[in-house]
Design a protein around this nucleic acid. Structure first.
Lengths: 342, 342
DNA sequence: ATGAAAGCGCTAACAT
DNA sequence: ATGTTAGCGCTTTCAT
């Protein structure tokens, strides 16, 4: 079923029908004809062929979300939320995972460029500034970074206020009388990781002689090797009585180690981590978290993209949003009051 | 950059170039011309316009995965695994969530049919037989059901062996000397839920006077109301000393209740659930699970679809796979030996 | 108020 | 071995 078929059936030209379908009939086509066409379309359930539309217009009403890992609860929660919002405006979202692998990310971008998607939401892998700059220069799609950004580039982004969030999390442990607080993060140039590390340091600077950080490479976040390195770190610094984990993955692997060591949380070691998950709520003891505002992040992402898509300016103002995190205090960081709970 | 541009630049007809791009040049085009064209394409980085290809061929090399909820770890793990496999064959996967909402599922199908996707992987909501039957009759796309199926329909599916898995899980609790074993499932007609319930009953029939089941509506799986209903159920049956949870969501909500009630697991109540998650491994005590073979399921799904896509037969044999689950025994179900662990 | 026709980029049947 | 051409379904400019 195509416009042509309708045209033949109704004895009305293709042009007229196209105008009606695209709501551009106002003042040009008689109401009588409009009704006739709309009724017929309704009746036979005609739907325009989107490939033909895309071929003709170059627009797909599609947004690609290139997450670091779509099976990570944080990213999949964002994805689901965005899907919901974008859907209302007739936009569809395609997801994929870069695995923080540059080559893979480049392939995916190329693949989706062939498909003429309208916008990219990207959590870039490392060493990706150049490609982002390229994409922005090309101006073929709206480019929005998420979770991490590049200071040097004047680009669109939606990120957490990582610096202040890490500071807040660390201060929470300080207030709970932790004496020696360690930071377990990612060995990475990602802005989010650098900012979280800096936030921790800024909170700790007047509190203990020096910061104590363990930075793990990305590939060891979930691995046995990661657990071993963390274990070694704990042995080397036996006085640690508080830990800030920079990601939920690091925390989960870390908690496994603490479980094996029979460390009492929070009595011996208080714990707080980024990214809330039901796992942390259910854990014994329940884990305090610095939660990212998933619905707000998703809303800003879509809002920003739709805004930029609509603004036809050559060089629109970059859309830059930094959203605050939320401290959720549970049992794992309540060292001072932990004896009261018994 | 289009074929036309290349044609002009190289003085070679677009037909010849098209054949070369599509690897149909064998024996028709001279090696010399092939090299010339391939080199040029390589050099300028030409990529064919996929909308034009789709418009012409009706094929998109795209598979849609309509999960119940793409933010559920089980479904997102499947999604990621499939993406990996399909990618190698040049196929892309688009994900979406039905939320077990029939209306939403219908809209999504319609939306993706407009985009001429090649195949649908569907975890159907309830009351969806008719639509599945329609889709199969239309023969526009390959239709593959996942996680649940319809007995009456002769369709493609990849599912877990739910019956025997539930039986195995229940037998595990029987062997651990549980006297009164309850089943907490979904109040649903989904084949997976019916089969799990039946598997539980078949294992229990010679063990206790009668089965003890709590069936919750889908909307209360994660809700406070769900917790309340589960709590009431426990109060009404104080002798329960073993529980089989039919989904990870039910188990998580159930564990929250057991935690509040200070029930000792497994001493007072042994617990086992479907669907493994890192949460269960980390839980105190670690939770025994009946794990679904995610990589195998994903592999079968893609393998089946590519097979059906290639077989050009009008009515190919339906692709039907039932994969076994894997029992992973952790602390939460080891009632007999639980005193040894102390 | 309506329609004719060009053309988006590609594939493939049909020439040559 | 290579080229000409029709047409996939649609949007939109330019007639009428």
């Amino acid at each position: 079923m195509s416009i042509k078929d309708i045209s033949k059936e109704l004895g009305i030209s293709i042009t007229t029908i196209s105008f009606i379908i695209n709501k551009k009939a106002k003042g040009r086509i008689s109401q009588e004809v409009i009704n006739k066409v709309e009724d017929y379309i309704e009746k036979v359930g005609y739907r325009p062929n989107s490939s033909a539309q895309t071929l003709r217009t170059g627009k797909t009403k599609t947004i690609v979300f290139m997450a670091e890992d779509i099976s990570d609860p944080f990213f999949s929660a964002i994805a689901k939320e965005m899907e919901e919002i974008a859907y209302k405006d007739g936009y569809k979202i395609i997801y994929c995972s870069t695995e923080n692998n540059k080559k893979r990310a480049l392939e995916l971008i190329s693949l989706f460029q062939d498909r003429q998607v309208d916008a990219f939401i990207i959590t870039p892998p490392e060493d990706f500034q150049e490609k982002i700059q390229d994409l922005i220069s090309q101006q073929s799609e709206v480019i929005m970074l998420f979770d991490r950004r590049f200071e040097e580039l004047n680009h669109n982004y939606v990120v957490l206020d990582n610096y202040n969030s890490a500071k807040t999390a660390t201060e929470n442990l300080i207030n709970e009388d932790c004496q020696e607080i360690a930071y377990v993060g990612l060995d990475s140039d990602f802005s989010c990781m650098v900012e979280r590390s800096d936030g921790y340091k800024s909170a700790i600077v007047h509190h203990q002689s020096k910061p104590l950080s363990l930075l793990l490479p990305f590939k060891h976040v979930k691995s046995a090797m990661g657990r071993k390195l963390f274990n070694n770190f704990l042995q080397a610094h036996p006085k640690i009585d508080g830990i800030v984990f920079a990601t939920n993955g690091l925390a989960i692997n870390g908690l496994k180690v603490l479980k094996v060591l029979h460390k009492k949380i929070p009595e011996e070691i208080a714990v707080i981590t980024f990214d809330d998950r039901d796992l942390f709520e259910l854990h014994s003891p329940a884990v305090s978290v610095l939660s990212q505002p998933v619905p707000d992040l998703a809303t800003e992402l879509i809002k920003g993209i739709l805004h930029l898509l609509k603004s036809k300016k050559e060089n629109p103002e970059p859309y830059q949003k930094i959203l605050p995190g939320r401290l959720i205090i549970r049992e794992s960081s309540q060292k001072r009051s932990s004896h009261l709970r018994k």
